[in-house]
Computed example of a mutant assay.
Amino acid sequence: MAKSQQTFNKSEKEKKRLKKREDKRKKMEARKLEKEENGGADSIPFAYVDQFGNLTDSPPDPSEKIKVKAKNIVIGIPKKEEGDEEEYDPIRKGKVSFFDNSKGFGFIIDTEDQEKYFCHVSGLIDEIQENDKVQFELEKGNRGMNAVRVKLV
């Protein structure tokens, strides 16, 4: 009598493979049935946007619909009118909180917003010391705003 070529381990692997294939087939059939019961595309959830821009799951009320003309939609930033300009005084006033003459830099505190601005000796018009009242202009530097054209008041 000849011995079987299939070992116990091989037959167990074959049983697992067949069971996996059968489970997959059952899941696929269950999905088909569920899709047919729900009517196909109705199972896909929709998201609607209400008049305030919020996402909802219910469709918006047609009575609250607002008619907008395409020419009224502004894309970009509107151009400034001549009367829209704010009066901005570039000259600010402040007090010298720290200044080191040997190193050539210091800091000025703005009297309006109490911001501290860096000041370099190259941006000075007059010689300044600590606690002097000064007027200055701001300029964008490498690490923020710098006080330039600084002179005593």
Rank of each mutant, 00 (worst) to 15 (best):
N9P: 02
K103Q: 11
E82Q: 12
G83L: 08
Q129A: 13
E14V: 08
K69N: 14
S97L: 09
G123H: 01
K133Q: 12
I108V: 14
C119S: 09
I77F: 12
G94K: 03
F107P: 04
D84A: 10
K35R: 15
N9M: 09
G104S: 02
L124E: 02
E29Q: 15
D132R: 02
E86F: 12
Q114H: 10
L138K: 01
K20A: 14
T56V: 11
N38F: 11
E85G: 09
T111K: 11
K93Y: 14
D113F: 05
K16A: 13
N142S: 12
R25A: 15
T111N: 14
D126I: 00
K16D: 10
I73N: 01
P59F: 04
E64Y: 07
A30K: 15
I73M: 06
I125F: 03
P59H: 04
I77Q: 11
G106F: 00
F8D: 11
R25G: 12
V49D: 02
K16F: 07
N38D: 11
E127P: 05
I75P: 00
K133W: 04
G39F: 02
V134N: 02
K19G: 09
D132G: 04
P90I: 06
I75E: 10
V150N: 00
K93I: 10
G40S: 04
K10C: 04
P59K: 10
G141H: 00
E14K: 14
Q5E: 11
F118P: 00
K16H: 09
I91V: 15
D132M: 07
K24G: 13
I125N: 07
F107N: 03
K32W: 06
F105I: 03
P45Q: 08
K151I: 02
D57W: 07
A47I: 13
E12L: 15
A30P: 01
F99H: 01
D132T: 03
S43H: 06
K26S: 10
G123E: 02
D57S: 15
S102K: 15
L55T: 13
F52M: 07
S122C: 06
E130C: 05
K19E: 14
E87G: 06
S122W: 03
N146H: 06
F46Q: 14
I108R: 00
S122Q: 08
D100Q: 07
N9A: 13
P59G: 03
N142I: 08
R149Q: 10
G53Y: 03
T7P: 01
D132C: 03
E81S: 13
F136E: 00
S63G: 06
N101K: 15
E137I: 07
S43I: 13
Q5I: 09
F118I: 01
F136I: 01
K20C: 05
D132V: 00
E64F: 08
G83A: 12
V121I: 13
Y88V: 15
K3L: 10
K35T: 13
N9S: 12
D132S: 03
N54T: 08
I77T: 13
P60Y: 02
D100Y: 02
N9G: 10
L33Q: 14
V153R: 07
R17Q: 12
E14H: 08
S4L: 09
T111V: 11
S4W: 04
V153W: 06
K151N: 08
Q129I: 03
I108D: 01
E115I: 04
